[in-house]
Amino acid sequence: METDLLQWNEKLTRMNEELLKLPNIKVKQSSTPLITKINVQTFYGQGMSNIPNISVNVNWVQNGVIVAGGHAQGNGLNQLNYPYGICIDSQETMYVADFGNHRIVEWKKGATSGQVVAGGNRQGSRDDQLKNPICVVVDDETNSLIISD
């Protein structure tokens, strides 16, 4: 058990060192002897965007699988172009802010391609257009998307 903790601590230290090499990343850790959560903050110009705290009790999958995109960069329904943000609703449907394609793509659990649910009509300011969306949030109560573009 102690060996596992030492290895885990070494991996976290290496990950922290790698993140600190990037100019727009700041890593905070709690001051308790064992890290209880990790908070990664990314900086965009004058503002700051927070990635949610990740508990150490999270069960991580050893070998990940591609759940959206995975067919090279592009604008097809099975492709993404600089995906920036994701949100997963209560039905485990994933919404991807597809920055480069100016759209929000919905990926149902187990789907092999997505469906455009906002934007996708080139860059612009019309009601049916987005301009480089970076974040999407699902409001299950009102069945709506909140998009930052």
Score class of each variant (00 low, 15 high):
124 G>P: 01
93 T>P: 01
119 G>E: 01
85 G>Y: 05
60 W>P: 01
13 T>G: 02
119 G>F: 00
51 I>G: 12
43 F>R: 15
139 D>A: 08
112 T>M: 07
92 E>A: 15
53 N>R: 05
60 W>N: 01
21 K>Q: 11
43 F>L: 15
51 I>H: 13
13 T>Q: 11
92 E>W: 11
142 T>Y: 08
6 L>N: 03
97 A>H: 07
17 E>F: 00
21 K>A: 05
122 R>S: 14
103 R>I: 02
47 G>E: 09
37 K>I: 00
135 C>A: 15
52 P>H: 13
149 D>Q: 12
40 V>E: 03
2 E>D: 15
1 M>A: 14
69 G>C: 06
144 S>V: 05
13 T>C: 01
124 G>S: 01
20 L>F: 04
128 D>N: 14
27 V>Y: 04
82 Y>S: 07
82 Y>G: 00
19 L>G: 09
129 Q>P: 00
106 E>W: 03
96 V>K: 11
90 S>H: 09
89 D>L: 04
128 D>S: 07
120 G>A: 02
80 L>I: 10
44 Y>R: 12
78 N>T: 02
88 I>W: 03
76 G>A: 15
101 N>Y: 10
144 S>F: 03
27 V>D: 03
3 T>Q: 15
104 I>V: 13
84 Y>P: 00
135 C>S: 13
69 G>P: 09
99 F>Q: 06
144 S>A: 14
105 V>I: 13
77 L>Y: 10
33 P>I: 06
26 K>S: 11
107 W>H: 04
123 Q>D: 03
24 N>D: 15
116 V>C: 06
109 K>R: 14
145 L>C: 08
15 M>N: 04
74 G>D: 10
62 Q>T: 08
80 L>N: 09
46 Q>Y: 12
14 R>V: 08
70 G>D: 13
45 G>Y: 07
91 Q>G: 07
148 S>Y: 13
61 V>R: 12
56 V>D: 07
71 H>T: 12
18 E>G: 02
13 T>S: 13
44 Y>P: 00
61 V>E: 10
148 S>W: 14
73 Q>D: 12
90 S>M: 08
